[in-house]
Amino acid sequence: MTQFALVIDLNVCVGCHACVTNCKQWNTGGEAGPLADLNPYGKDPNGTFFNRILSYEVGTFPNTETWYLPKSCLHCEDPPCVPVCPTGASYKRKSDGIVLVDYDKCIGCKYCSWACPYGVREFDEERKVMTKCTLCVDRLYDTSLPESRRKPACVLACPAGARIFGDIHDPDSEVSRRIREEGGFQLMPELGTRPANHYLPRSKTVLPIDEAQVVRAENPLRHDEAPHATGLQPIEEEMG
């Protein structure tokens, strides 16, 4: 069974919001749209977006890490949002695991969004229905698109290549491999929702340099008879 998902590489996400507006762009004009914007040119503008970037600071100066967390529906394998829906408008597709809302059935009771721990469902105030990330399902199977573009809009947009799309049930897929190899994790896994979307953690590259490496045997200073080269002598001798 297929379970499509996004894997988001926090190691390279720079919090640029490309995924946010390109998601909006694709979806407002697509099957999932239109997505309303309220007070678009006035006070407190706000609207329906399927994907948002949160930022956090971890630690204290100077050991601060700045974290960006792109967050959209995680297409949980055990999605609490689905069974609570009284109309069946919220459903999870058996074929590919995508969790969707059928706008024609949704009565806008918002109950599904209560059940979702992640705050990723957004009620569209204009259409009065619940909306959320569709994994751009209207791109995935569109054979009129070139194969390489049959991916979510946010994935194609992401300048850092931080968003990877694929089937996490296929152990050979890139997403599965990266989850496995790079320690992919889920958000609040203890809640039992089994999110399909995973995140890849930050990793640090360090270059330990030891003192002996610093002064090379073939030091140009000796050749150059630099006025300060004397200061190096002891180390050079040590290194033979």
């Binding site: 007070n39 977006f49 600071e57 705050g119």
Partner: peptide
Amino acid sequence: RIRQISQGSMGGNYN
């Protein structure tokens, strides 16, 4: 020690 700094929707949102 983790503090949120922003959520990318300053004019508010449904959530």
